[in-house]
Design a protein around this nucleic acid. Sequence first.
DNA 1: CGGGATCCGTGCAGATACTG
DNA 2: CAGTATCTGCACGGATCCCG
Lengths: 132, 132
Amino acid sequence: MVTAQAGSPAAQDDIMRAGTLAREIFSDVANKWALLIIETLGDETRRFSELRDALEGISHKMLTQNLRMMERNGLVERTVHPVVPPRVEYRLTGPGHGLRATVDLMCEWTRQNMDHIEAARDEFDETSPRRG
Amino acid sequence: MVTAQAGSPAAQDDIMRAGTLAREIFSDVANKWALLIIETLGDETRRFSELRDALEGISHKMLTQNLRMMERNGLVERTVHPVVPPRVEYRLTGPGHGLRATVDLMCEWTRQNMDHIEAARDEFDETSPRRG
DNA sequence: CGGGATCCGTGCAGATACTG
DNA sequence: CAGTATCTGCACGGATCCCG
C-alpha cells in the first residue's frame, strides 16, 4: 500500500514512521499465515502438498494465496518441475531467511513467556468479570 | 485456539511444535493491531485517546478489544485514574517490552529489505501475468 | 473520557468444481 | 498434484447509542 500511486513525494518520509511501516509489514508482508509458512519452510525445500500437510489447518486456497504473496514480496522462491504429475517446490530466499530469524525470536519470546501469559490470563479471567 | 478443551494431556507436547506455538502467537498474542499498539506504546504511558489518535486508522472498538486482550495476556498494564473525566492509561509490562524488542527487529528487517521487497514486487508484477 | 453492547455491512476464508 | 475461479458464509470490523 505504501507504493501505490499516492502521488505525494513527501509521503516517503512518513514511511519511516513506525506506524506506517508496521502497517505495511503486518498487513502484507508478515501476516499470520505468512509467518506460519516461514516457520514451516525453515531451511528446507518443500512441496505444495507438504506445506499443506504440515500446516494442516490451512485451506489450499489460503496456502496458494499466501505463497503467491510471499513470492511477490521476494520471501519465497517457487520452482516448477515440468513433470507429468506437477511438482512445485518452495523455499525461503535470503531475505526470507532474514525474516525467519525475527520470527524465530518472536517464537522464542513466546516460549519463554508462555507461563507468564497463562498466569496473566488466569488472573485476568477472575479479575475482569468481577472487578475485585 | 490451542487452549479450548482439547482434553488430550499429550497435546502439551504438541505445543512445542512450531506450528501450534506460532498459531497461538499470531492469532492471539501478536496479531496485527497488537503489534501496532506495542510499537505505538513504546516506552511511554499513554491514554486511550492518545493511542487512538496515534493509530488513527483504528476504531475505538478495535482499540478497546485489543487493549483488553493484551492486558489479559499480560502485555500491557491498565491504570484507571478515578477522576471525574475518566483517565485510563496504558503501558507495556516487562514481557510486553520483550515482545516489543522482537517486533522492533522485524521492523528493522523490513526497513533493510524494503528495496528488495519492492524490487521483487516489481519483477513479479510483470513476470506473473505474462509468464515470460 | 473510556468502554460496553448492539446492529449491520464488508471482505476474508472455506468448499466445490474445473483446468493442465 | 498444483492452481484458478466462483459462490457462499460467517466472523471481523465499523458506526451508533448509552452508561460510568
